[in-house]
Design a protein around this nucleic acid. Structure first.
Lengths: 338, 338
DNA sequence: TTGTAAGCGTTATCAA
DNA sequence: TTGATAACGCTTACAA
């Protein structure tokens, strides 16, 4: 099979001829100007329909200097993204929904490799999009700051680690963790460990902070092992904790995937959940309700984060002023693991 | 915070002036023409670097009639997509990887609602992209066929149900299911039930076909309940099967999510897996290795499907002839549930 | 209210 | 090998 034909598309010119008006008038009608007489609008619309006219976006964008598209940049990081993680798909979905309403296109870019990152930089700084959304940053990526300085609308998921003053949307990580750890304390747990997330991501950092502050405030020890939000890392961290603190009676994991792995590791080690050890995760991915036992976790609305980021970006692109940050709420969902 | 500045980007003209050559020559150098004298190429490249010149894609696309972008159309269908499903994220990832290598953009479009579908149709038929990828079709969507007839390169995930002759890439559903059901039979199962997928999707249809053919060939009864690939639907279908066929000793579920729900439902009903009932899923999502017990399932390479679809599309867009279909292999992964 | 005409930044066709 | 110059299809002052 092959593609390729020479289907000539009708242009404004063709519509104008057919409707017996000028190109300018057709343009006005197509763009919804109200200054055109009703009968003429009618004639133009008929011509558009008959010819199957669709505006050439390249031509339009050439003169308007807008592209009507927004880039969503995702760190690719090997298998992490899109593996079992629901965060990125959720953000994509939220962004897509909001952009659809604004009739703008979503251009997805992976910035995992150095080449990918370079490509993203070239593309975004080249003003090929009206704005850029960053879904989760690793380390202190300077790109958001650079774009912001160039006057290109940018919104990040989570506060940028390089200290750049770029608008961002995040969830109340510390508040969520605090509630989770307090829940453990109130249920009599005293050897509360934590499987922390990666410390080069703001979510990893903040969730660890929430844990530290809460156990310390209660006069309890900080017992931490590190993972990177994935199941494999969660299993490894759980093993470390069991070895280092055999008397542990609770685990707060910074992601549901790590909590899921912890559940299994604990079972393999002969510990009963929640009888011997209570476990709480973070994210409330769908799987959390189906683990054995069902996972108590901190919920936040992933899709809503994507939507809110996009709304902020669209305001920025429209020249409106916005808050530097928006923090979405988190909520403790108590199931059976704690 | 606000966006908006008047950062004037340098144009070809500016580079030409700075390098002391014509616009045409700069264009040649930028596009890698070999007919330009080396010293001049050098001068142009320096000017490009100094000015930070980035080509205006809209202008280029206006004259080349190419957009260097490809649309990936996904059915949105409420919570289904992007919920816990790893299929769509996997396809996105594969497409993104392959397009990155080809230096083309990935435009993601959701076609769940009627409005969304209409928007996709307008955008793709309007030739705003060089090709269109369809990730999983519901029902007999005429759009792929329409686009193909317009000469717009199209590749689908799975054979289109409306019989349109559109190139597609799929996995060997029937072969995979056949191996799974035979495995159950070989292990002595005789009351083999199936939780089928939605019958308006090719994957749902083919996986059911594979089940029917295999049990029938073995002289066993067809015992089917229907789901839509989600966990909720899987739980409901499992309940139905337990009620209708209390003596069942095996379940083949057309998706891992449904199999996961079946596992829980069986446990709640007091059936032991695999002792009383063997369970096999399909997809081999990451969670499959973490269910209780770990799920035996049919694996296929999700990301590879996305990559292969994209490779085919790029060939088509380049004017090459391609096979009407490419079928990727499936493999039975035996864990503990069967 | 409508039309004229001047770009927008490229690429491509010719000549030179 | 290089340079004019004419498109590409649209929007938008400015005129009428």
């Amino acid at each position: 099979m092959t593609g390729m034909t020479t289907a000539q598309r009708p242009t404004l010119e063709a519509v104008a001829r057919r409707a017996g008006v000028s190109r300018a008038t057709v343009s006005r009608v197509v763009n919804g100007s109200t200054t055109v007489a009703e009968p003429i609008q009618e004639a133009v619309r008929r011509a558009v329909a008959e010819l199957g006219y669709v505006p050439n976006l390249a031509a339009r964008s050439l003169v308007t200097q807008r592209t009507d598209s927004v880039a969503l940049v995702m760190p690719e990081e090997a298998t992490r993204v899109f593996s079992d993680d629901q965060v990125f798909p959720g953000i994509i979905r939220g962004a897509a929904q909001e952009l659809e309403a604004a009739d703008k296109q979503l251009v997805l870019m992976l910035a995992g490799s150095a080449a990918g990152h370079e490509r993203v930089e070239r593309y975004t700084t080249g003003r090929h999009v009206d704005g850029v959304l960053f879904a989760s940053l690793h380390g202190a990526d300077p790109l958001p700051g650079t774009l912001a300085r160039l006057g290109i609308p940018v919104v990040c998921a989570g506060r940028p680690l390089d200290g750049a003053r770029v608008p961002y949307v995040d969830v109340d990580n510390v508040g969520g963790v605090t509630r989770a750890v307090r829940h453990l304390i109130e249920n009599g747990r005293r050897r509360i460990t934590s499987i922390a997330g990666p410390q080069d991501m703001i979510a990893g950092i903040e969730r660890l902070t929430g844990y530290r502050e809460t156990v310390t405030a209660a006069g309890l020890p900080e017992l931490v092992a590190y993972g990177d939000f994935t199941r494999e890392s969660g299993a490894a961290a759980m093993h470390q904790l069991l070895t280092a603190h055999p008397d542990l009676d609770a685990v707060f994991a910074a992601s549901d995937l790590m909590a899921h792995a912890a559940l299994r590791t604990l079972r393999e080690a002969g510990r009963r959940v929640p009888d011997d050890v209570a476990v709480i995760g973070f994210d409330d991915i769908e799987t959390a309700a189906y683990t054995e036992p069902p996972l108590t976790t901190v919920r936040w609305e992933i899709v809503e984060l994507g939507r809110e980021m996009t709304r902020q970006l669209l305001r920025l692109a429209a020249g409106e002023a916005i808050e530097e940050s928006v923090i979405l709420p988190t909520e403790l969902v108590v199931r059976e693991s704690a």
